[in-house]
Amino acid sequence: MNLDDPRHPWTRLTAGARSARDERETAAPFGFATRLSALAFGRKPGALVERLALRALGLACLLAVLSAASNFSVLRLGSVGGEEELAEDDPVVLLLGD
């Protein structure tokens, strides 16, 4: 029997299914349109915080680079005679002597 045949189980099932009435609400849920329009126009509540946080991160990186550059000479001197200077001030070395 062909699927288009009115006696075919499929045809009778679909005819029955068509008569089922969907009585669910079709209006938009409360707040749906407001949430969507806010999303669509990109005015998310966290957007400002996110933007500021990114700027703060950029500023922090810049400050770190500047501070490393301005203290470069000190760091370099420290690395040259570092071990001897440290040993002079080390209380363990002072107590135990050479």
């Binding site: 009778r12 099932l13 679909t14 005819a15 299914a17 008569s19 089922a20 009435r21």
Partner: peptide, 17 residues
């Protein structure tokens, strides 16, 4: 059988489909 789906079984028919 070759009977139509009764009206009170429409939702069941919908689910099967």
């Amino acid at each position: 059988n070759e009977n139509d789906v009764p009206a009170n079984d429409a939702i069941a028919a919908h689910e099967i489909v």
